[in-house]
């Protein structure tokens, strides 16, 4: 074998372990999902057959699908900007010389470390009508008890609040790392020029954090479509699908209703939406970001 060919063999050998994992657990399932979405769900009496886009047509007529899609949109809009803003705020705060800085940083990060199931159980206690923490506190001020998770009007808000609490600390770590790479002279130079804290943040810190923001934003969007564990504990998507999100609906369709083909269809839509969002973020934001 020529030297050149050997180099190629060597390269492919190095790639093989990662390639096997990627193909086996990502690419192959993706392809079979797409294929499956074009077939009907088979049963003992009626075998699966090719139906073309019938599953997609059914989806467009499915009220629950539209409901969970809207829920997911509101959930994303409610969690992403809030958790990013909170993360930056906390990061800027704990980046300064404050007493017990390490302790404060740890406190902000704790929600991220906790397992989602445990977090959901804690918040379940907060939201419980009458005996829950929130009702107890509000009761002290004479405000009547409320079934926070049982009311379609408040349930999604409750879940958004919990998610923000959980995510902000995680994103804070990224911002904190980015802040620590900014040379302190920049702030001193701005101080000599008379720039206030807010002005400096707006014109210098925030633009320099943009690469981090893009990264966090993509993560946050993915998470908003990915997080389901808390729904199992808190609401099971109810009441009347008021807190159901796309992935939870897919889970229900696949493993409660056993409609695999329709679940595959929904999955393809979810993947497509995520890919589109990630692409849009890169294309729109990339040009306006300063990378060092």
């Amino acid at each position: 074998m020529s030297r050149r060919a050997l180099v190629h063999v060597y390269g492919w050998l190095l790639l093989t372990p990662a390639a096997i994992l990627l193909v086996a657990f990502t690419h192959y399932p993706t392809v079979t999902t797409v294929v499956q979405s074009l077939f009907s769900t088979g049963s003992a009496t009626r075998p699966s057959r090719f139906v073309g886009l019938d599953n997609y047509r059914f989806m467009l007529d499915d009220e629950v699908f539209w409901k969970v899609l809207w829920n997911n949109l509101w959930y994303a809009l409610g969690t992403i900007p809030a958790s990013i803003a909170l993360a930056i705020l906390m990061a800027v705060w704990v980046n300064r010389a404050i007493p017990a800085r390490g302790l404060v940083r740890m406190a902000y990060f704790t929600p991220t470390v906790l397992p989602m199931i445990a977090v959901a159980n804690i918040w379940l206690f907060f939201y419980t009508p009458d005996i829950g923490l929130i009702d107890q506190v509000l009761g002290a001020f004479g405000i009547p008890a409320h079934n926070w998770l049982g009311d379609p009007a408040t349930v999604l808000g409750c879940i958004i609040v919990m998610t923000v609490w959980k995510e902000a600390g995680f994103f804070m770590i990224f911002y904190l790392a980015a802040l620590q790479t900014l040379p302190p002279e920049l702030e001193e130079a701005a101080r000599v020029e008379g720039a206030g804290r807010w002005y400096f943040f707006r014109r210098v810190t925030f633009p320099l954090l943009m690469p981090t923001t893009l990264f966090v934003l993509i993560n946050a969007v993915m998470n908003s479509f990915k997080l389901v564990d808390h729904l199992f504990i808190l609401t099971k998507g109810g009441p009347d699908n008021a807190s159901s999100l796309l992935l939870y609906y897919i889970y229900e369709v696949a493993f409660s209703f056993f409609d695999e083909a329709y679940a595959a269809t929904l999955t393809v839509v979810l993947l497509g939406a995520l890919a589109a969002i990630a692409l849009a973020q890169f294309l729109l934001l990339e040009r306006r970001i300063h990378y060092r």
Binding site: E185, A189, V204
Partner: peptide, 11 residues
């Protein structure tokens, strides 16, 4: 003030 590292705003 002129700083040793120049303290220019990179963006």
């Amino acid at each position: 003030m002129v700083f040793q590292s120049y303290a220019l705003f990179p963006h």
